[in-house]
């Protein structure tokens, strides 16, 4: 089965006790693993003012769950969250393609960055003649 990375952000009601919260977190983690996925991270983003009223609340406790698995896993997590009463809202976003794209961009930028300092270093090192001998093409515009 195809393994994908998903981010599930959900809002828990703000008047929840810490112990209940911990219980909820651990139960979600076990549910993910039993459904055949792996929890990459579960981050508490803290209490935040909601942009609009949700279920009679103006604040909410935001949580961010990153999981790896297939579509069936997402289906199961969403079903569980819908059943879990203290969860006000959730959203699932597929991240693997975004991550791949970001890495690609980063690699491209790094390659570009690396290409520039090489020229910059060679010229002030007073080894212009050597550089010209080794790399005649890139050294020529730098000296000119």
């Amino acid at each position: 089965m195809q393994q994908r990375i998903y981010e599930v952000m959900f809002i828990v009601r703000p008047d929840m006790v810490d112990e209940d919260m911990d219980k909820l977190v651990s139960s979600i983690e076990t549910q993910v693993t039993t459904a055949g996925g792996t929890v990459k991270s579960l981050e508490k983003m803290g209490k935040r003012r909601l942009a609009y009223w949700v279920g009679g609340f103006q604040d909410g406790f935001y949580m961010l769950l990153t999981v790896e698995g297939g579509g069936a896993l997402v289906h199961e997590i969403e079903r569980r969250l819908r059943v879990t009463e203290p969860v006000l809202k959730f959203i699932t976003v597929r991240m693997d393609e975004e991550i791949k794209r970001m890495e690609k961009m980063k690699k491209l930028r790094d390659a570009k960055k690396r290409a520039v300092p090489v020229q910059a270093v060679v010229v002030p090192a007073a080894a212009a003649t050597e550089a010209a001998a080794v790399e005649p093409v890139p050294a020529a515009p730098a000296t000119a």
């Binding site: 809002i11 935040r48 942009a51 909410g60 959730f90 959203i91 976003v93």
Partner: peptide, 11 residues
């Protein structure tokens, strides 16, 4: 639009 759905931004 995603942020609106999770109440980070208002509709």
């Amino acid at each position: 639009k995603q942020a609106r759905n999770i109440a980070l931004l208002p509709f």
